[in-house]
Simulated scan of single mutants.
Amino acid sequence: MKPSARTIRRQALLALCVLGVLGAAACASAPPQPPAVPGAPPVARALAPGVYMLPGTGGSADEANLGRIGNAGFIVGETGVVAIDTGTSYAHGRAILAAIRAVTDKPVKLALVTHTRPEFLFGGKAFQDAGIPVRMHSRTARLMAARCENCLKQLRQVVGEAPLAGTAMYKPDQQFDEPHAVEGIGRSVRVLYFGHASGPGDIAVFDEASGTLFAGGLLDAGRVPDIQDGDLAAWKKALAALRGLRVEQVVPGHGSASPAVLIDTVEGYLVALERKMRGLVASGTSLLEVPDAGELPAYEHWDQYDLIHRRNASIAFLRFEREMLFK
């Protein structure tokens, strides 16, 4: 069978990356580790002493991957553990806890939810039932309450009822508005908040000893970032703030653990998207033309390009068009 034009372009882009012809923004896509096996119990991958990642599968949620497409992780301190994100479902939350217990018998003191996406928050009830408080930003809690009943209904339609047994909406045990240090685990871990950036209450978690950043919705690796809840200008300011930290490695919301250059890679996409969409607005392009006119070939090999990038293009176009009209 003759390969499609899209396949040929992707192969060409990968070849250019290998030869060093394209820049880092276009080439940071091939994962250094294999993704999680769909449906398999999560297994902790050590990234640094006391720092672990539980990889998601990537892609879109479906019956095969049980919706477990996003990453989770945990940090082990002298006296306890903080979990970062709770998984897609009640069963996934329990599986994450089992993966933590396979590594350490220290108590899990806290679960942090980084942002409002089903694959990061719907395991929260499993943590609460185990006596572990779930903490999230107050704006994340409000967004979850406003729309996640519908998110859960949609998730049941694509994943199925059985994998989501016991999964339910819940309220966080703890809410916050400001950046702060995690207490009670005997390790210096900071919760970072830069205002409404990739989402209204999106946070990152930084382990100072190892320089590991759990980036939540701020960074994805080899996957198109979703701008529908984002403020592009503020998002770029947040990324600039991350550069001021001693980041050695990043656990993104989706994709493989990556070096700190991932910050530049994601910003490169956001800048390219804005430049392209502002150009289309200025040239009088119609919204109907945007999905095709707004292609960014340097990024088409990224996960979810066909779905998320096309949606990003339309969202950004409408925002910039409105901005021009109301100047």
Rank of each mutant, 00 (worst) to 15 (best):
V247G: 01
E267K: 01
A221K: 12
G268D: 06
L232K: 10
G216E: 11
Y193Q: 10
A240H: 03
L262W: 14
P200S: 11
L213M: 07
K237G: 06
G199L: 06
R246K: 14
A257L: 05
P200W: 13
V251W: 09
A234F: 02
G255C: 11
I203L: 14
F206T: 13
V247D: 00
G211P: 06
A197E: 13
D220P: 03
V251Y: 11
V261M: 02
G211E: 06
R223C: 13
Q249W: 10
F206R: 09
V261W: 00
D264M: 04
S210M: 08
A197S: 15
Y193A: 10
V224H: 01
R223E: 14
G201K: 14
G268E: 02
F194G: 05
L239Q: 08
V261T: 15
G268W: 00
A238C: 03
A209V: 14
T212S: 09
D231G: 02
S256T: 00
F194V: 01
V271W: 05
A238V: 02
L262C: 10
I227E: 13
D264E: 15
I227G: 08
G211R: 06
A241F: 02
A240F: 00
H254L: 02
H254T: 12
I227M: 14
V205L: 04
G211F: 02
A257N: 04
I227C: 12
G195H: 01
G222A: 08
S198C: 11
P252R: 07
V247Y: 05
K236D: 08
G230R: 07
H196Y: 12
V261G: 08
A238D: 05
S258V: 01
V247T: 08
S258G: 07
L239A: 07
L218F: 04
D229W: 05
A238K: 06
A197H: 09
F214T: 05
A241V: 07
V271I: 08
A233N: 04
G253I: 08
G253D: 07
W235S: 08
A234D: 12
L218N: 02
T212G: 03
